[in-house]
Design a protein around this nucleic acid. Structure first.
Lengths: 228, 228
DNA sequence: CGGGACTTTGAAACCCTTCAATGCCAGTGG
DNA sequence: CCACTGGCATTGAAGGGTTTCAAAGTCCCG
């Protein structure tokens, strides 16, 4: 909003107004979208598309990844309910976005319709920029996470960040849509190390594991301390 | 351009037209910009700004970084001549952008003027999106580089990427504006390791070092082979 | 019940970090 | 002019953390 918003919006704490605008935006753009459901591992889009659509994920989860030349998979984005994705970011790198869960629901916004909508209303343009800035935030967060010195810090940061996502933070028990392998490929460490870090966090009492994919955070501060 | 461009632009290989539009865009936006010169280590902008400007770097170099809680510095972006930066990407993370070289020249585009310009011409909006997508590309490239398994691969990829930058690729001898420490903080490895990797690349004949900051790439393919 | 994907744990090998010391160069002040 | 300082670059050696390889356990689903 900041980079391109109207002057009145610059007096910041008008959160309601900002929130309303977001709602209006969602309503407007959903009017031009096509709903889809995807199966586990189903490809949603990839970097080959000459004319990429915009998408929003409604339920389930998706991952954006690239295969390194040595065969390893690098996940460069986790997509959770409410997140936009797919617009022409990072061209020519051979990335793929695919659903992680069965029944993952998405909305696809065809580019020519997004174009027309944006041309008709500057407010839409502002919100589209917000969407893209959000992606930049996520990527920077990932760089800062991967950049940590030790694997334990990376995993702790990952747990902190994912637990703050709007789609998870409300529930009392967090449910990871990701396997240990996915987390490993996101953090650029081995799945065994991820596993060991989770075990350590559990033994330290920083998280409680109800199952491999379900956990609670009894004391958020002690988790933050793990990141030093 | 793809995500928001006019229908005619979708027939891709109109590179000249695209290039011309870029030129027009630069001309238009430079008309609202303020030129500045910065000394080494001088701060250009930071994440505290409630209303961030857009910037473009003309000469010299800059780095975007965040200080980890353990005191280490993580560089999350290298800014070279021609690059845009500074718009509201990655809020609330306490980042700083500062000049690396003495005499670094930049143009600052005040946000309200960018706003007005965008509102007046949809073509400007398209180009601004291109600017932001470019930043996403760079960040993703960094994730893929940091995500490599071995330090030698990270350094080789770094050398490959920076040598492809428009502002460097034309010269016969590449001149790094960065110290080994900067490269280390960009790749999230220790400066000693960076140094050893450069030495190894030199001993393998993959690069020729004329000085710590100057090198040539006798055989690009063998450098690409270092990345596996 | 069996298969397959995922999770967990252990042990050894390897790579990177850390600590330390040296060298180099430019800028500064005596 | 020259010692001196600080920042950067380089190299070595030891220590530690992660990866790799291996094996066993769990759970879901056909």
């Amino acid at each position: 909003m900041q980079g391109l918003s109207q002057a009145p919006a610059y007096h910041p704490p008008l959160y309601n107004r900002s929130e309303n605008r977001r709602q209006d935006f969602i309503k407007a753009i959903d009017a031009i979208g096509n709903h889809k459901r995807c199966k586990r591992r189903q490809e949603i889009c990839n970097g080959e598309d000459t004319l990429p659509s915009w998408y929003r994920l409604l339920s389930g989860a998706a991952r954006r990844f690239t295969i390194h030349s040595d065969g390893r998979r690098q996940i460069t984005g986790l997509i959770l309910p409410g997140d936009f994705f797919g617009f022409p970011n990072g061209q020519d790198r051979g990335w793929i976005i695919e659903a992680i869960c069965d029944g993952t629901a998405i909305v696809e916004y065809p580019p020519n319709r997004v174009e027309a909508l944006a041309a008709s209303d500057m407010e839409i343009v502002h919100e589209l920029f917000q969407v893209v800035f959000q992606t930049i935030s996520h990527l920077e967060e990932q760089v800062l996470t991967i950049g940590r010195a030790k694997a334990a810090e990376k995993v702790a940061l990952f747990v902190l960040h994912i637990s703050e996502h709007p789609s998870l933070s409300s529930a009392p028990v967090m449910t990871l849509p990701l396997s240990r392998y996915d987390i490993a490929d996101y953090l650029a460490i081995s799945p065994e190390t991820v596993c060991r870090c989770f075990t350590d966090l559990r033994n330290q009492g920083v998280i409680r594991l109800l199952g491999p994919r379900q956990f609670t955070i009894p004391d958020r501060e002690s988790l933050e301390d793990c990141v030093q």
